[in-house]
Design a binder for these strands. Sequence first.
DNA 1: TTAAAAATGTTATATTATAACAAACGTTAC
DNA 2: GTAACGTTTGTTATAATATAACATTTTTAA
Lengths: 130, 130
Amino acid sequence: MVQAQTLSRNQQIVLDIIEKAKGPLKAYSILFNVQKKGINAPQQIYRALDKLIEMGKIHKIESKNAFVACRNSDCEISKATAFSICESCEMVDEISDVKLSKYLSSFNHKKGMKFKRFNLEFFGICKKCK
Amino acid sequence: MVQAQTLSRNQQIVLDIIEKAKGPLKAYSILFNVQKKGINAPQQIYRALDKLIEMGKIHKIESKNAFVACRNSDCEISKATAFSICESCEMVDEISDVKLSKYLSSFNHKKGMKFKRFNLEFFGICKKCK
DNA sequence: TTAAAAATGTTATATTATAACAAACGTTAC
DNA sequence: GTAACGTTTGTTATAATATAACATTTTTAA
C-alpha cells in the first residue's frame, strides 16, 4: 500500500534532492549527492525512487533514465504524464494541459485495448537554446 | 547521412530478427540470437540498432529498453510514434492513428517550445490477457 | 584509383538496475 | 506492554544495459 502523507527518512532525502534540482536527476547522481547523509548503496536510492513514483511524487523520464519532481496535481498518481524535453540543454518540463490529458485519457485503441495509463514525451529545442 | 535503401550486413541481420519477433526484443537477447552468425559484441548490436532507428526501420520502446520493427509508414523516420503496451504479456503494438498523430504533431507547448518529435506509450491489459 | 565515409571487429569499461538476506523500526491487535 | 506483522533500512554481490576507444576493412563517390 501507498502512504498518502508521510515519507520515510530515505524517501524524504531523495525527494528533497529531486525537488531542489533544476533538471532531471539520474539515480547514481542522486546517490553521490547523498553519501554524506549516510546512504551508500544504489538499492537505497532505487527503493526510495520506486516508492516516490508509486506515490506520484516524482516521475521517471524514460528516454533519459532520469527523475523529476511532479509539478502537476492533474496527473493523479502518474496515470497521465506528458513532458517537454529540450534536446540541447536536457531541460524537462512537465506539461499540464487538461485538454491534452483528457484527449489521451479517452483515447481507445482500435484493437480493443483499454488503457490505464500513458506517458508522452515531446522533444525539441527550448526557447533558451534557440 | 542515412541510406534510404540498402542495409549493411549486420544491420540486415539485426533487422531480420526484430521483424520476425512477435514482441519487443532487448539488445542482449538479439546478441545471443546472432552469435551463430559471427556477431560477438554488444557494440555491433547497438551500432546496428542506432542506424536502424535513424532510418525509421525500428523503434525503441523506452519504458522497456527494447526494440520493435516499424509497422507504420506514417511515423516517417520516427518523428511521431505511439505504442500500446500490455502490462501483463508485454505485447507491444504500434498505433497508427492519423488523428492522434496530427493532434500531437500540432500540439504546442505554452512556454513557446516547438516540438520536432514525440513518443507516446499507452499501458493497459490487452484483450488476450483479460 | 584514391580519398573519404561507413561499417566492422575487438577489448575494455561505464552506467543503470536488481537479487538476496539480515537487522531495525513502526504499527496495530490483543 | 508485547507479540505479530508489514515496511524500511543496510549491505554485499551481481545482472542488465550501453558506450569508449582504437585498429581494420569495405563501400561510395569524386
